[in-house]
Design a protein around this nucleic acid. Structure first.
Lengths: 237, 237
DNA sequence: TAGATTGTTAATCGATTAACAATC
DNA sequence: TAGATTGTTAATCGATTAACAATC
């Protein structure tokens, strides 16, 4: 691990040099600071790498090459190397990538090195199902609160969490420092919930409702719409 | 509607002419046949258009321009026109697109003009939640069978469907002409289920399990992995 | 050392956007 | 007719892939 520490320093230095990366340059307090424009496609692949690397780690695999990763994940090895190179020099020429080290690096890129608290709105079947993902999310992320509009559900428990009324949402967000929310309510209730989340300071939303949410542009919405996925699958029949 | 019929004929003719479309040409039985290479990005946007157009239809809106669609969906109007133009001439210069007509056209492009039967494997909370999407899928698609490995669940009912054992999968696929399947089982069971689905002749899979499925290349997998969506959201914090 | 594999540049490929003639 | 809007070409932008020097 000693040589990896050295490498870490090298990275820091490297980030200040300009690179082929198309990111713009921004002047801050008189300095030219590199803003490495990372594409959405890259960010979407990072969790894919992380998931597979975690498998390798569980199997006690020490190192892995971009070639091997590419074969396992159906991706071009050059693309994998380039993706990772956006964030630093994590590999060793002639050797490949040290699995444990790369896992930590990707976690830190995704800001998963500290626990990220998440809340869930909607305690129906879908909400129940999503609560169980805490096991998969491991220590990096955690669903820490559940809300529902139905008075009959308030106070009941799901996986150790008490279902709370929406009125408590803003307070809980502040108390538990929550920044990400999951919407698992019917389509016709989703926009109102989203407005409430935004007002409470949420900046990332995973939306399961089959509807287009309108949010301010500083808020990011990822859609996980079953109907849309099924519809696009049908095209390829 | 009369003029739309004429337009339909025009389209058919049009598809045989070469266009700027980058699709390759393939020789079949001595004829040059256009194989319009439609990009994945286009196919993923079609259900977005359809969902919004269905809303307009419900509100009795007659026509809509690419400009209006673009504003509502946060897309460039030129992109919307180009997407639709991949499949024919659906609009009218100076007017826009007739909502009802366009809905039918997109449905037919997505092969949703006839009911598409879907099966679901996994009768946990997630499976329950997904069964309820039948309401949103309307008449175009329908989850028509549910399977589970747990003997205690076999025979119980979810939304009018009896939970079946996996042993019956192949037969049901044949009987009900099912081509698309949804995997809603734990990660460690997903690959075995996928193998079984592929063996039964399924060609499209919507996978909710947080794992990389390995399938033959004629089978299409869409991942709907909550953990990956949450992880990539975290990046933008 | 010889073989392997990275990081990175250059080449390619594809997707998005702008612009505009055609026309409703 | 004048204004609006499509379908489509051309221009731009960005992402993927190939290739290779550097080096473990």
């Amino acid at each position: 691990m000693g040589s990896q520490e050295q490498k870490a320093q090298k990275e820091t230095a490297r980030r200040k040099r300009p690179s082929q990366n198309s990111g713009g340059k921004v002047r801050r307090r008189g300095q030219k600071v590199k803003v490495p424009k990372i594409s959405e496609a890259v960010v979407r692949r990072l969790p894919v790498y992380l998931r597979y690397l975690n498998n390798l780690k569980a199997m006690n695999v020490r190192t892995v090459s971009s070639q091997q990763l590419g074969e396992a994940l159906d991706l071009n090895p050059a693309q994998i190397r380039k993706d990772l190179a956006c964030f630093g020099e994590f590999g060793r020429k002639g050797i490949g990538y040290e699995v444990n080290y790369l896992v930590e690096k990707i976690k830190s890129i995704l800001k998963l090195d500290k626990q990220v608290n998440v809340l869930l709105v909607g305690a129906g079947h879908l909400g129940h199902a999503i609560s169980n993902y805490n096991a998969y999310l491991k220590d990096s992320m955690r669903i820490v609160a559940i809300f529902d509009a139905d008075p009959h559900k308030i106070g009941k428990k799901i996986v150790n969490m008490m279902i709370q009324p929406l009125e408590e949402l803003a307070n809980t967000v502040k108390e538990k420092n929550i920044r990400i929310a999951i919407i698992a309510v019917p389509a016709d209730a989703a926009q109102a919930v989203a407005d409430r989340l935004v007002a409470a300071g949420i900046t990332g939303i995973l939306n399961f409702a089959p509807t287009n949410l309108r949010v301010p542009e500083n808020v990011r919405v990822h859609d996980a719409d079953v109907t849309m996925e099924l519809h696009s699958l049908a095209y390829y029949l």
